[in-house]
Design a protein around this nucleic acid. Structure first.
Length: 886
RNA sequence: GCGGGCGUGGCGGAACAGGUAGACGCAACAGACUUAAAAUCUGUCGGGAGCAAUCCCGUGCCGGUUCGAGUCCGGCCGCCCGCACCA
C-alpha cells in the first residue's frame, strides 16, 4: 500500500485545479450565486498561522457551497497601504512600495501552498494605482455631494519626529520612537460625514437587514453609534462678565439626565472648550493646566482613566430652577468631541462627577431615591447612584419617576426657552486624513485665491511621487518635501498652488474592496449590473477586532456608493462570522543579562526534554511565558510553510479547524498538528486498499437485500452526512470534524466486506455497496477541509468514473437519506427525584404510558422508589423520564 | 473608566430549545506487533468508596427558580478583548 506523501500530492492537485480553472467565478447559467469573503490580509511579510485559520474557514464554506451547486465567488487581495511599510522603510531603508510588493509575492505563494479554492484572476492590492484611482474618483464625488468635508480636529503630535502618532504609538504620553512628550495639536483635516447616516446605520442593526450578524457585533456597533436622547440647554452667567459676545451668552451643555438637574453642583467644560481658551489667554496657570490635560493621549480610554482634575474659572453660573450659584471648572474628563463639550455635574448621579466633587469639596445633593430606600436615611458615600428611582429634593420634579422627570424637565426648559430635547450620537464623523506617504493621495489642490479645489477628474489618478527610500529616515511626511509633485498650478485660476499632502485612512481602501472583487471595469469603480449580481457578500469572515470600525465604515461606504450609483445594496455583508485568534506559548531565554527584547525565543528553538523546557541547542533552561496572540515582537510564531513542509497543508488546515470552536481563540501546539497528520493517514489507509471500489456501483440505487451489518454502516454513513452538513452550515467546524472522526471509527470497526470466502453472492454485493457508499461519503465530507487528500482518494476510489465529477471539488455534496436517519429503538434515561438511576430501551414510537411502565419496572428504579409513594412521572418524549416519589 | 466576551477532566473542547455532564481529539497509562525504537493497532482514562452490583461528590464561588440547572435569574471572583491615526 503506497504511503501518503503530501509533498508530492498537494502540488499535483493544485496544478490540476489550476489547469481546470476549477475556482473561476462566472456569472452564467442559472446556478444561484454565493460570495464568500475573508477579510483580506495586510502584506506584513509572511502568512502566519492565524491567516491559515481564517482562510481555511472561508475555504471550507467555498468548497462546500460549490459542491451544493452554487456559483461561488471566493477572491483574494491585499490591504496594502499603511504604516508598517513606512516603519520598515525607516528601519531597513527599503522603499514602502518595494517592501509591500515583495511581501505580496511571498504571501501569495504561501497562500497558494495552502490549496485555497480562490479565483486568483481577481487579485489586486489597494496600493495598485489601478485600484486607488477609482477611490480618488469616488472621493471627488463624495466631496461634491457633501459626504466629504474639512474641519479642524485634534491629533497626537510628536514634536521630534514631526509626525502625527496613532494612539497605539503613544506610550505613557510619549512618542514610541522619539520618546518625546506627545502634544495635542489641531489640524485641518478631511472627514466623511458618517453621522449623517447614523440613524440608518443604527436602524439596520435591528430591522432584519443584519440578521446574519452575531449579536455581540451588532451590540458593539449600537454602543459605538451611541444614540442618546437628552436635553441641550444654556446655563447663564451670574452677574456681569467682560466676556466677548460669542461667550457672554452662557455655556451650552448636553445631558441625558435632566431629571437630576436639581442635583447639579458645578459646571465643567472640556480643556479644548472656547471658554477655557478665553480665560487661558490671561491666566498662565490655566494655560499650563490645559497643556497638562493635552498630554493625556487622545484616546477615550486614556481620558476616562486619568485622575479627575479641574481648574476653577473666575465665573459662576445660575441654576435654571432655583437661585443657587454653580462654580465653573475646566475639567480633564469632559470630552470636547461629545455633545457640546460642556456638562453640568451631578455628583450623586454620576461616578465621575462624584469623584470630582469629593476632590474639590463640592456639595453632593442626592436627587434620585432608589426603590425601597428611606429619604431620611439615604446617603451617597463613595458610589453614585445611577439607576432608576423616585426624584426627591427637586422642587417641581419631586415624586416623579426618573423617566417622567426627564420628560418634565425637558418640557420646563423648553417653556423657559433655554434649550430643547435633543438626540445625540457618540459616533463622530470619520476622519480620513493621514499625514503619511504610503496611502491613497487625496485629490485636492490648495490655492491661495480659490481655496481648496478638486483635482479635475481627467487628471486622475494622483499618483504617489517617486520618493527616494532614504527620505523615510527624515522626520516628517515625505510628501511635504516632494516639491516637484506638491507644487502645481491651481486647476481653476492657474496660479501656483500646492497639492493636498494628506493621504487617506487605510480603512477607506478596505471599505469597498469587496465590490471591486465582484466587478473590475477599467474606467470606473464598478459596473453596477455586475456588482449587483454578486453583492451582498453572502458570508464574510474575519477577526472580531474589526467588529466596529472596518465593518461600520464599509456599511457607510456602501451607502455613499449607492448614492453615487455604483451599487445597489446598503448592507454589503449579509452574514458575518468573527473568528478567534491563534495563540501560542511564549518562551523566554533565562539569561537575564540580555535585554528583554532579545530574550524571546522562537518555538522551534525550544524543546521539551524530561518534562523540562530547554533551548534546543544549548540545553539551557527556558522560561515558559503566557499563552498569547502570535506576534513578531514575542516571537511566538509558527511558520505555515514549515508546517506544510512537514505535514502538508491539509494537516495544517485540519488542525486549525478541529478542537476549538471557530469563534474562540485556538492554541497552536505541535501535538495538535501531529494529531491532524494522523487523521490524514487514517483516511488514506481506509481508502487505499479499496482502490477502484466506486466504479462497479451506482450509488443512487442501493441494493435491497442488505444484511444487518450493511444497514448499520449505511446508517452511520447517512448520520455522518447529515451531521457534517448541519455543522458546516452553522460554522461548527470543530463538531463537523468530531463527527468525521466518529464515522471513521465506525467504518474501521466494520469488518472488511469484500470477503474472499464463501459468503452468499448477494450479500457480498450489498455489503460492498455499503462500504463503497461509506468511502464515497467520507471523501466528499473531508474534501472541504483536506482538499488535496480528498482528490487523491477520489482518484484512487475511481470517483472520476462514477460521473459525479472528474475532480472531487466538482462532485456534488452527498445527501442523507431520511429513512436511514430514523431510529427504531431509543435509550431513555430514568431519573428518580432528579437523579439518574437507570436506562431503558423502548421503541421510538412508544407512548408515554408504555414508557412509564418500562421505567417503573426497571430493577434499579424499583429499589429507589421502594417504600415511597410515586407523586408524579414526567416523561419528556425521546429524552428522559423523571419519577418523583417520597 | 465605559463597552463586549469567556470560566466544564491533566489539556482543547462536546452537551439541540432546561432533560443521561465529559462526544471527538490530545496527553497519559497498560497491552499487542518489533531484536529495539518509531509508526500502527487494542484497552483504560473526572474524584472518592466497594470484590462486584452499585453508591456518594463534581461544570469558577454564594444564593434562587424548577420534577429536573453546565444551561435560566440575582450577587460575587478571575481571565481576555475593544475604545476612533495598528490593520
Amino acid at each position: 500500500m503506497p504511503r501518503y506523501n503530501p509533498k508530492d500530492v498537494e502540488p499535483k492537485w493544485q496544478d490540476r485545479w489550476n489547469e481546470a480553472g476549477a475556482f473561476a467565478a462566472e456569472r452564467d447559467g442559472d446556478k444561484p450565486k454565493y460570495y464568500v469573503l475573508e477579510m483580506f490580509p495586510y502584506p506584513s511579510g509572511r502568512i502566519h498561522i492565524g491567516h491559515v485559520r481564517n482562510y481555511a474557514m472561508g475555504d471550507v464554506i467555498a468548497r462546500y457551497k460549490k459542491a451544493c451547486g452554487f456559483n461561488v465567488l471566493h477572491p483574494m487581495g491585499w490591504d496594502a497601504f499603511g504604516m508598517p511599510a513606512e516603519n520598515a522603510a525607516m528601519q531597513t531603508g527599503a522603499h514602502p512600495r518595494d517592501w509591500t510588493y515583495a511581501n505580496i509575492d511571498v504571501m501569495r505563494g504561501q497562500l497558494k501552498q495552502m490549496g485555497l479554492a480562490i479565483d486568483w484572476s481577481r487579485e489586486f492590492a489597494t496600493c495598485d494605482p489601478e485600484y486607488y484611482r477609482h477611490q480618488q474618483r469616488m472621493f471627488l464625488e463624495f466631496w461634491k455631494k457633501g459626504f466629504a468635508y474639512r474641519k479642524e480636529s485634534q491629533v497626537n503630535w510628536d514634536p521630534v519626529d514631526q509626525t502625527v502618532l496613532a494612539n497605539e504609538q503613544v506610550i505613557d504620553g510619549k512618542g514610541w520612537r522619539s520618546g518625546a512628550p506627545v502634544e495635542r495639536r489641531k489640524l485641518s483635516q478631511w472627514f466623511f460625514k458618517i453621522t449623517g447616516e447614523a440613524d440608518d446605520l443604527l436602524a439596520a442593526l435591528d430591522d432584519g437587514r443584519l440578521a446574519g450578524w452575531p449579536d455581540n457585533v451588532r451590540l458593539m456597533q449600537r454602543n459605538w453609534i451611541g444614540k442618546s436622547k437628552g436635553l441641550q440647554m444654556m446655563f447663564r452667567f451670574v452677574g456681569a462678565t467682560d466676556l466677548p459676545a460669542e461667550l457672554a451668552d452662557g455655556v451650552e451643555i448636553f445631558t441625558t439626565r435632566p431629571d437630576t438637574l436639581f442635583g447639579a453642583s458645578f459646571i465643567a467644560v472640556a480643556p479644548d472648550h472656547k471658554l477655557a481658551a478665553h480665560f487661558a489667554e490671561t491666566d498662565p496657570k490655566l494655560k499650563e493646566f490645559i497643556t497638562e490635560c493635552q498630554k493625556t493621549g487622545t484616546s477615550e480610554e486614556a481620558i476616562e482613566k486619568a485622575e479627575k482634575r479641574g481648574y476653577k474659572l473666575p465665573v459662576e453660573m445660575g441654576h435654571p430652577f432655583d437661585d443657587r450659584r454653580l462654580p465653573v471648572f475646566v475639567a480633564n474628563f469632559v470630552l470636547m468631541q461629545y455633545g457640546t463639550g460642556a456638562i453640568f455635574g451631578c455628583p450623586s448621579g454620576d461616578q465621575r462627577d462624584l469623584d470630582f466633587a469629593r476632590k474639590y469639596g463640592l456639595p453632593v445633593p442626592p436627587v434620585v431615591l432608589p426603590p425601597n430606600e428611606d429619604p431620611a436615611t439615604f446617603r451617597i458615600e463613595d458610589e453614585a447612584y445611577v439607576g432608576p428611582g423616585t426624584i426627591f429634593n427637586s422642587g417641581f420634579l419631586d415624586g416623579l419617576s426618573t423617566d417622567d422627570a426627564i420628560a418634565a424637565a425637558i418640557k420646563k426648559i423648553e417653556e423657559m426657552g433655554e434649550g430643547e430635547g435633543k438626540i445625540q450620537y457618540r459616533l463622530r464623523d470619520w476622519g480620513v486624513s493621514r499625514q503619511r506617504y504610503w496611502g491613497c493621495p487625496i485629490p485636492a489642490i490648495h490655492c491661495e485665491a480659490c481655496g481648496i479645489v478638486p483635482v479635475p477628474a481627467g487628471d486622475l489618478p494622483v499618483l504617489l511621487p517617486a520618493v527616494d527610500a532614504e527620505e523615510f529616515k527624515t522626520p516628517g511626511n515625505p510628501l511635504d518635501r516632494a516639491a516637484d509633485w506638491k507644487n502645481v498650478p491651481c486647476p481653476e485660476c492657474g496660479k501656483p498652488g500646492r497639492r493636498e499632502t494628506d493621504t487617506m485612512d487605510t480603512f477607506v481602501d478596505s471599505s469597498w474592496y469587496f465590490a471591486r472583487f465582484a466587478s473590475q471595469p477599467e474606467d470606473r469603480p464598478t459596473d453596477k449590473k455586475t456588482v449587483d449580481s454578486w453583492l451582498p457578500v453572502d458570508q464574510y469572515i474575519g477577526g472580531v477586532e474589526h467588529a466596529i470600525l472596518h465593518l461600520l465604515y464599509a456599511r457607510y461606504f456602501s451607502r455613499m456608493m449607492k448614492a453615487c450609483g455604483y451599487l445597489s445594496v446598503e448592507e454589503p455583508f449579509s452574514n458575518l462570522f468573527t473568528q478567534g485568534m491563534v495563540v501560542h506559548e511564549t518562551y523566554l531565554d533565562s539569561d537575564e543579562t540580555k535585554s528583554l527584547k532579545d530574550r524571546w525565543l522562537l518555538p522551534e528553538e525550544v524543546v521539551r526534554r524530561d518534562g523540562k523546557v530547554v533551548h534546543a541547542e544549548s540545553g539551557a533552561p527556558v522560561i515558559v511565558g503566557a499563552i498569547e496572540k502570535m506576534s513578531k515582537s514575542k516571537r511566538n510564531v509558527v511558520s505555515p510553510e514549515a508546517i506544510a513542509e512537514t505535514y502538508g497543508a491539509d494537516a495544517a488546515r485540519w488542525f486549525m479547524l478541529s478542537d476549538s470552536p471557530p469563534e474562540r481563540d485556538v492554541e497552536w501546539t505541535d501535538a495538535g498538528v501531529e494529531g491532524a497528520w494522523k487523521l490524514v493517514n487514517r483516511v488514506w489507509d481506509a481508502v487505499a486498499p479499496a482502490k477502484g471500489a466506486l466504479k462497479p456501483h451506482d450509488l443512487a440505487n442501493p441494493p435491497g437485500d442488505m444484511d444487518e451489518a450493511g444497514v448499520a454502516l449505511r446508517r452511520a454513513t447517512h448520520a455522518a452526512i447529515d451531521g457534517v452538513t448541519e455543522d458546516i452550515e452553522h460554522f461548527r467546524f470543530n463538531k463537523a470534524i468530531a463527527r468525521i472522526y466518529e464515522f471513521l471509527n465506525t467504518l474501521k470497526k466494520t469488518p472488511p466486506m469484500k470477503k474472499a470466502d464463501g459468503s452468499p453472492a448477494n450479500s457480498v454485493r450489498a455489503e460492498a455497496f455499503a462500504q463503497a457508499e461509506a468511502l464515497a461519503a467520507l471523501v466528499r465530507l473531508v474534501a472541504p477541509f483536506t482538499p488535496h487528500l480528498a482528490e487523491e482518494c477520489w482518484e484512487t476510489l475511481g470517483g472520476p468514473e462514477t460521473g459525479m465529477g472528474e475532480l472531487v471539488c466538482d462532485a456534488p455534496w452527498p445527501k442523507a437519506d431520511p429513512a436511514l436517519l430514523a431510529k427504531d429503538e431509543i435509550v431513555l434515561a430514568v431519573q428518580v427525584n432528579g437523579k439518574r438511576r437507570a436506562e431503558i430501551a423502548v421503541a421510538a414510537s412508544a407512548d408515554n404510558e408504555t414508557v412509564e411502565q418500562a421505567a417503573l419496572s426497571d430493577e434499579t428504579v424499583k429499589r429507589h422508589i421502594d417504600g415511597k409513594t410515586v407523586r408524579k412521572i414526567v416523561v419528556v418524549p425521546g429524552r428522559i423520564v423523571n419519577i418523583v416519589a417520597n
